[in-house]
């Protein structure tokens, strides 16, 4: 349970980090909070030649409102977002979802962008980004591009990030006026991977739902604004089957479908009741 040898560099600027990354490419790993990467290093699931530590770059450590988004830099921790004074008003969904991520002690160090980069199918932040239709900023030494959530996460632990790019920032749209938000998940213990996680936005023009932990990435559906009762149950049942859940050691596919139906209904109703 000790990492294999690697070079370590703590660059003084983003430009220096990108230059090192451009040279090392797939042999390098970006170290931000390290709450996923470090266990993988300890277990030798990854053995990079060089670690590029961006955790202390002030230029990447920010949370700000910008053009209708909350933009979160790559070095900003989950805890910093949780304690951001405007969070409950600007992003009620994130305020509900963040306490479910790991534990107090890991959120102190784990970053928002790091969670998006890892792209675990059951992770809360990729789910929220997918539901809200957010985007990530990918930066390399030679170019910058902005990728929508739906085009970013491609499958199990797989994203559109190229080997010479870092996620320099994530952008979550601020709460829509008049919309209500809901979040719920079921895990074996608090802080464990979700067996199913559900995020809902109930807006004026429609109900949008995203499911994590069941398919290989967060899956999003749009329902009509007035959906309720048997129509809602039918829509959730269709969605539950469409996700093609599989049995694994933690839960059966049948149980996961049941979570989508029941927790889905509860979360949709909660989001609707939060509409203002």
């Amino acid at each position: 349970m000790k990492p294999a040898p690697f070079d370590y560099i703590a660059p003084e600027s983003v430009e220096e980090a990108l230059a090192v990354l451009a040279e090392a490419g797939e042999d390098a790993r970006i170290l931000a909070g390290g709450q996923t990467l470090s266990p993988m290093l300890n277990m030798r699931l990854v053995e990079p030649a060089v670690l590029i530590d961006i955790s202390r770059l002030p230029a990447l450590d920010y949370i700000r409102r910008k053009n209708g988004h909350i933009e979160i830099g790559a070095a900003a921790t989950q805890n910093a977002l949780e304690n951001w004074p405007e969070l409950a008003a600007q992003a009620p969904l994130l305020a509900q979802a963040l306490p479910h991520i790991g534990h107090f002690q890991t959120r102190n160090r784990g970053t928002v962008c790091g969670s998006l980069a890892f792209a675990d199918p059951s992770a809360e932040l990729p789910l929220c980004l997918a539901l809200l239709g957010g985007e990530v900023v990918l930066q390399s030494a030679s170019r910058q591009r902005v990728v929508k959530a739906a085009d970013f996460q491609l499958g199990m632990l797989s994203t559109a990030r190229e080997a010479d790019e870092i996620i320099s920032a994530a952008r979550f749209p601020v709460a829509e006026a008049g919309a209500g938000y809901g979040f719920a998940e079921m895990a074996l213990r608090h802080g464990d991977f979700a067996l199913a996680a559900i995020a809902v936005k109930a807006g004026k023009t429609g109900v949008r739902i995203a499911i994590g932990g069941v398919a290989d990435r967060p899956m999003v559906r749009n329902f009509p604004a007035g959906i309720e009762g048997a129509a809602l149950d039918d829509a959730l049942n269709d969605l539950a089957w469409d996700l093609a859940a599989a049995d694994d050691p933690h839960a059966t596919a049948r149980y996961r479908r049941e979570l989508v139906r029941r927790l889905g209904r509860k979360t949709v109703e909660e989001a609707k009741s939060c509409r203002v």
């Binding site: 703590a10 709450q35 470090s38 266990p39 530590d53 955790s55 002690q105 102190n108 160090r109």
Partner: peptide, 26 residues
């Protein structure tokens, strides 16, 4: 040694963190 049990938690600049998920150089 993978951040789950919490036994190795220390404070780094005052903040509670897992010392098994942090490098000495950091």
């Amino acid at each position: 040694e993978h951040g789950v049990c919490g036994a190795c938690t220390v404070r780094l600049d005052g903040v509670a963190i897992r010392s098994c998920l942090t490098l000495a150089v950091q």
